[in-house]
């Protein structure tokens, strides 16, 4: 097992190197660079930009270097100093830009993930064991709606109805007086009610999907012979259910860790934009749009690292929870 893990870890080095190069190159593929956008923005708002200013800014952010030079500066600082570079559009270190938002993003993602599990798995099991009952139909109906309607649309509708009924805008995560204030007990208490809407909307499509997956997996398992055998031998229905099929039905939770973990910190970009949430999603989108390559590149690199590690983690966990995988490996 240990050799396997260390072998996999070694494999990651060339993989991450290739990912970092691809990420950096793709961000820079569109014509122009950050300064083109920046100067154009100033020019359109009527401000003159001196030729000197452009030259200086280019030099300051290393935009005058060739692509490989920029890549080298970026990756060197990450490896040697753990320094993710400066965000050109924010005028701040990348770690600072992402850092502030990471906590809130994680909070929303983790709470909605837990919520998804708590709601979806029991419903999925119930739906499967009571297939074609009226509750199964009801859950399936709601589930399909949740799957079919994109989260941002629900967010938009919610914003619209709340504004029409109360004249309030349900946006942001804090009341104005706590926005930008240092963390305190009051700020935390203020955050909680503001989190309800985003958590529900972020969790909605996930819940719907997981209900469907659990139900499908359960149905597959329930019709297998070992279930019939166990039932025939007189194992109690509850014990039968939870000992085998349920354990198998929640496999997707483990096997998808590879992309669940990066999703936790990337935030739901479009929902966040609609609800004006200070999370990481919109920041990445904006960075990509203006070619702020150090911010976008570093963030994508973090996501890639998490994906790669998450995949490894899910492989290990799968072996732990599922004996068939463990033994299947040794047989050959």
């Amino acid at each position: 097992m240990l050799t396997y893990i260390s072998y996999r870890l070694l494999q990651m080095i060339p993989l991450l190197f290739v990912i970092s190069v691809i990420v950096f190159v793709i961000i820079q593929l569109p014509p122009g660079d950050f300064l083109t956008t920046y100067v154009e923005q100033l020019r359109l708002s009527g401000s003159d930009v001196d030729a000197s200013t452009i030259i200086q800014l280019k030099a300051q952010y290393g935009l005058d270097l060739p692509l490989y030079g920029q890549y080298w500066v970026w990756i060197k600082n990450i490896i040697l100093h753990g320094d993710l570079g400066m965000s050109i559009q924010w005028n701040l270190p990348v770690s600072e830009v992402i850092g502030d938002r990471l906590l809130l993003t994680l909070l929303i993602s983790v709470i909605s993930l837990i919520l998804i599990w708590i709601i979806a798995i029991p419903i999925g099991i119930y739906s499967a064991t009571h297939q074609y009952s009226w509750l199964d139909y009801a859950f399936s109906f709601v589930g399909f709606i949740g799957l079919a309607i994109p989260g941002f649309l629900i967010a938009l509708l919610l914003v619209y109805f709340v504004f029409n009924l109360t004249g309030l805008s349900v946006t942001g995560l804090f009341s104005p007086e706590y926005e930008g204030a240092p963390w305190s007990w009051g700020k935390l208490l203020d955050l909680l009610p503001h989190m309800i809407v985003p958590v529900i909307i972020v969790g909605l499509s996930g819940t719907a999907a997981l209900i469907r997956i659990t139900r499908g997996m359960m149905l597959d398992e329930l019709s297998k012979q070992y279930v019939i055998t166990a039932r025939a031998k007189g194992v109690s229905e509850r014990r039968l259910l939870f000992k085998y099929p349920v354990r198998l039905a929640i496999h997707p939770l483990v096997s998808t860790i590879g992309w669940t973990i990066p999703a936790l910190i990337s935030g739901e970009a479009i929902i966040s934009i609609v609800l004006n949430l200070p999370t990481t999603g919109p920041i990445l989108l904006k960075a990509l749009m203006v070619q702020d390559m150090y911010l976008a590149g570093s963030f994508l690199l973090i996501l890639s690292v998490l994906t790669v590690f998450g995949t490894l983690l899910s492989d290990i966990l799968l072996a732990v929870v599922d004996p068939r995988i463990r033994f299947g490996g040794t047989r050959s």
Partner: peptide, 18 residues
């Protein structure tokens, strides 16, 4: 000066008196 993710939210905030 409040950073808002998109233009439509700005209009919403104007209408909400924010």
């Amino acid at each position: 000066s409040n950073f808002v993710q998109n233009l439509e939210v700005v209009k919403l905030k104007i209408m909400a008196g924010e």
